[in-house]
Amino acid sequence: MAAAAAAGAGPEMVRGQVFDVGPRYTNLSYIGEGAYGMVCSAYDNVNKVRVAIKKISPFEHQTYCQRTLREIKILLRFRHENIIGINDIIRAPTIEQMKDVYIVQDLMETDLYKLLKTQHLSNDHICYFLYQILRGLKYIHSANVLHRDLKPSNLLLNTTCDLKICDFGLARVADPDHDHTGFLTEYVATRWYRAPEIMLNSKGYTKSIDIWSVGCILAEMLSNRPIFPGKHYLDQLNHILGILGSPSQEDLNCIINLKARNYLLSLPHKNKVPWNRLFPNADSKALDLLDKMLTFNPHKRIEVEQALAHPYLEQYYDPSDEPIAEAPFKFDMELDDLPKEKLKELIFEETARFQPGYRS
Results as ranks from 00 to 15, higher is better:
residue 134 L to A: 07
residue 222 L to V: 04
residue 122 S to L: 07
residue 116 L to G: 06
residue 116 L to V: 00
residue 39 V to E: 15
residue 297 N to P: 03
residue 283 D to E: 15
residue 213 S to T: 04
residue 211 I to F: 14
residue 115 L to D: 03
residue 163 L to K: 00
residue 314 E to G: 00
residue 146 L to F: 05
residue 348 F to G: 08
residue 62 Q to Y: 11
residue 226 P to I: 04
residue 186 E to G: 00
residue 11 P to D: 09
residue 27 N to W: 00
residue 157 L to Y: 08
residue 332 D to W: 06
residue 116 L to M: 12
residue 211 I to M: 10
residue 62 Q to A: 11
residue 145 V to T: 11
residue 208 S to C: 09
residue 328 P to M: 03
residue 359 R to H: 03
residue 242 G to F: 07
residue 56 I to S: 15
residue 268 P to W: 01
residue 176 P to R: 10
residue 199 M to D: 08
residue 91 R to H: 13
residue 3 A to H: 03
residue 215 G to V: 14
residue 136 G to V: 14
residue 73 K to H: 06
residue 171 A to H: 01
residue 134 L to F: 12
residue 334 E to V: 14
residue 23 P to Q: 02
residue 13 M to V: 12
residue 295 T to I: 08
residue 360 S to A: 14
residue 296 F to P: 01
residue 185 T to M: 06
residue 18 V to R: 08
residue 23 P to H: 14
residue 98 M to E: 04
residue 360 S to P: 14
residue 271 N to L: 06
residue 342 K to P: 10
residue 287 L to N: 11
residue 180 H to P: 09
residue 245 G to H: 06
residue 282 A to N: 02
residue 17 Q to H: 14
residue 202 S to Q: 10
residue 56 I to H: 14
residue 101 V to E: 15
residue 332 D to R: 06
residue 71 E to D: 11
residue 151 K to M: 14
residue 293 M to H: 02
residue 46 V to D: 15
residue 323 P to R: 01
residue 173 V to I: 05
residue 60 E to T: 11
residue 218 L to N: 03
residue 125 H to D: 12
residue 150 L to I: 02
residue 297 N to Q: 08
residue 271 N to R: 08
residue 66 Q to V: 14
residue 283 D to R: 10
residue 86 I to A: 02
residue 260 A to M: 00
residue 124 D to N: 14
residue 295 T to P: 15
residue 109 E to V: 13
residue 239 H to F: 11
residue 132 Q to Y: 01
residue 292 K to T: 05
residue 82 N to F: 04
residue 302 I to Y: 07
residue 58 P to A: 15
residue 333 M to V: 04
residue 231 K to L: 09
residue 23 P to V: 04
residue 104 V to F: 12
residue 118 T to H: 03
residue 132 Q to S: 07
residue 51 V to P: 13
residue 70 R to T: 00
residue 264 L to D: 03
residue 9 A to R: 11
residue 173 V to H: 06
residue 307 A to L: 00
residue 92 A to N: 01
residue 287 L to W: 07
residue 177 D to Q: 11
residue 214 V to P: 04
residue 152 P to L: 11
residue 155 L to I: 09
residue 226 P to A: 07
residue 86 I to Q: 04
residue 33 E to M: 00
residue 249 Q to R: 03
residue 345 E to L: 07
residue 231 K to T: 09
residue 120 H to G: 07
residue 160 T to G: 08
residue 247 P to I: 07
residue 207 K to H: 08
residue 269 H to V: 06
residue 252 L to G: 08
residue 344 K to D: 09
residue 39 V to G: 00
residue 253 N to T: 11
residue 7 A to M: 13
residue 339 P to M: 10
residue 145 V to Q: 01
residue 109 E to W: 04
residue 64 Y to D: 15
residue 336 D to I: 10
residue 261 R to C: 08
residue 20 D to G: 01
residue 171 A to N: 06
residue 341 E to N: 04
residue 27 N to I: 15
residue 290 L to Y: 09
residue 31 I to Y: 15
residue 286 A to K: 03
residue 273 V to H: 03
residue 198 I to F: 15
residue 65 C to K: 02
residue 284 S to N: 05
residue 228 F to A: 01
residue 49 V to D: 12
residue 104 V to W: 07
residue 121 L to S: 11
residue 46 V to G: 12
residue 307 A to C: 03
residue 141 H to C: 07
residue 12 E to Q: 12
residue 351 T to M: 06
residue 16 G to E: 12
residue 79 R to G: 09
residue 257 N to V: 07
residue 286 A to R: 00
residue 119 Q to P: 10
residue 98 M to Y: 06
residue 26 T to H: 05
residue 266 S to M: 03
residue 202 S to G: 11
residue 172 R to I: 07
residue 68 T to L: 15
residue 130 L to C: 12
residue 238 N to G: 09
residue 89 I to M: 08
residue 293 M to R: 09
residue 30 Y to T: 04
residue 66 Q to A: 10
residue 148 R to S: 07
residue 55 K to N: 15
residue 198 I to R: 11
residue 187 Y to T: 05
residue 147 H to C: 04
residue 45 N to S: 13
residue 199 M to N: 05
residue 208 S to W: 05
residue 313 L to Y: 00
residue 133 I to A: 00
residue 257 N to A: 10
residue 205 Y to C: 03
residue 126 I to R: 03
residue 38 M to Q: 15
residue 88 D to S: 00
residue 137 L to F: 00
residue 307 A to Y: 00
residue 174 A to K: 10
residue 219 A to R: 11
residue 329 F to P: 00
residue 104 V to G: 11
residue 152 P to C: 04
residue 109 E to A: 04
residue 290 L to V: 05
residue 246 S to N: 11
residue 268 P to Q: 10
residue 328 P to V: 06
residue 45 N to Q: 14
residue 157 L to E: 03
residue 352 A to H: 06
residue 89 I to E: 02
residue 169 G to E: 03
residue 14 V to L: 12
residue 338 L to E: 04
residue 166 C to V: 02
